[in-house]
Design a protein around this nucleic acid. Structure first.
Lengths: 258, 258
DNA sequence: ACGTTTTTAAACATATATGAACATAGAAAT
DNA sequence: ATTTCTATGTTCATATATGTTTAAAAACGT
């Protein structure tokens, strides 16, 4: 049996179930566990299913994004580290664009240390948190509301971003790859981030280390669009060399240990 | 069973309950207490439930996250009465505009009884509550965020409303007067409501009885722009005569006592 | 306020799952 | 026929998940 044929069978089996195990698949498809794991890794990478320990779950948006939220909760300190570095790159009187990601959201409380900021965001939670800081002018993009991420996307959001020019934008994404650049699971979010970057003089990417060397369905940008990358762990030498070549400034917490 | 799958089950179980205990979950899901505690910690960390001693409570995360303002607390039954009447004027497949007022907000939970609605709103809380009802397409206007009302106003909001045509709009206001029509305390909110009315085939005003015979600074509209008025008490004869002359349909709760 | 009981979170132990490295076999290309 | 490539299996160090124990914290009854 060819891999592609098996991939299809795996997806078929998963369609009618809420989950399936590696062992189960290995048995039914008469192949080894390693093979199944490799298959699942590919399918998960393509966004066709969600990997779990011991098996996989279908990615019916509803089901899949919740576990992702949970997984993200683990990275709590990572995101705080990132935010602490990021706040140092922001200056008084700037106009910023913030995306709707939870990583960027962590930056919001720290913004109260700056004065006279103007901030645009498509994140409902981001806007809500910013509303507490009265000295910041906050603009929401509006647009279609994505329920699971509580963010505005689509034509309305794109049009809103189109009307402005920002000094900086801070964005995150689901996955990073040297070959494929930044990618995301949602086409609307990807489009919007593309626009955000285009309308900003400087682009900073905030991502924790778990996002490296992964690819998801929708392309956001290539590395030449990124000015600065802030993460929670020192990237490996391959990445550092690559990022230097692409003229991306890289910041991670250890850098302050000198 | 995988952690992610169990997380989902925990959330499912919690959906229909006011609380659930660790022991109960451990029993039903055939796993140890420690595991459940670890799960709950993660889910709570992700904001998907609230931890209690011995168990967990559902946290309608989106809504409860926002402290309900004092304004919303009083006139509670009045606004519920109004919402109950208003929902009967809404039909499946309609496109609605809702303003950001707390009176109109009370209408949102009742919208789940309708199908295929498309809703535009400038209220952040309105959008958040609507996000819970997955079968509704929700569009936020975006614009400058007014902190105290958590609503979007200004050019961005006006431009967003300008792009649409709605079947109905539901708006409220600070004060009503026979001579001066509808008025509000905020110039931006007034402008926006004017635009909302202009872009709707039918305009319904939701106001409790305390708003009658008052005037505030900014003019929203005269009575000829209003198609229907829903309130919580029968207006006096002067008002009834006037509203009849202006061809405004008036609804109040007593009307259903027949 | 006090002591008792329950609940919790951290530390540890164990079992299972994972991905990387390597090896092998068969298919495709030369 | 030989080489190259791909798919698969095997092994192993590591990561993850769960259960168990224990000390501290919180809730409770008196």
């Amino acid at each position: 049996m060819y891999p592609t044929e098996r991939h299809q069978k795996i997806l078929d089996r998963l369609k009618n179930r809420k989950s399936i195990s590696v062992l189960e698949l290995a048995g039914e498809l008469h192949t080894g566990e390693a093979t199944i794991r490799r298959d699942l890794a590919k399918l998960a990478n393509a966004g066709l299913l969600a990997r779990t320990h011991g098996g996989a779950m279908p990615v019916n948006a509803l089901v899949s994004e919740i576990p992702l939220q949970v997984r993200e909760a683990d990275q709590k300190t990572a995101k705080t580290d990132i935010a602490t570095l990021a706040i140092q790159t922001i200056f008084d009187n700037e106009t910023l664009i913030l995306d709707s990601s939870s990583t960027v959201l962590r930056l919001v409380p720290l913004l109260k240390t700056k004065t006279n900021l103007t901030i645009f965001s498509n994140g409902v939670r981001t806007c809500l948190m910013l509303a507490d800081i009265s000295k910041i002018r906050v603009y929401g993009t509006g647009g279609r509301l994505r329920e699971n991420s509580l963010s505005f996307v689509g034509y309305g959001a794109l049009a809103a971003i189109d009307t402005i020019i920002a000094d900086q934008c801070f964005i995150s994404c689901k996955s990073l790859s040297i070959d494929h650049g930044l990618t995301d699971l949602d086409v609307d979010e990807a489009e919007l981030r593309k626009k955000m970057m285009a309308k900003s003089k400087k682009v900073t990417l905030l991502v924790d280390h778990t996002k490296f060397n992964q690819t998801t369905s929708f392309h956001i940008a290539d590395w030449d669009k990124i000015d600065r990358l802030i993460t929670d762990e020192k990237p490996n030498d391959e990445w550092l060399t690559f990022l230097e070549k692409m003229k991306v400034d890289v910041l991670w917490p250890a850098i302050s240990d000198f």
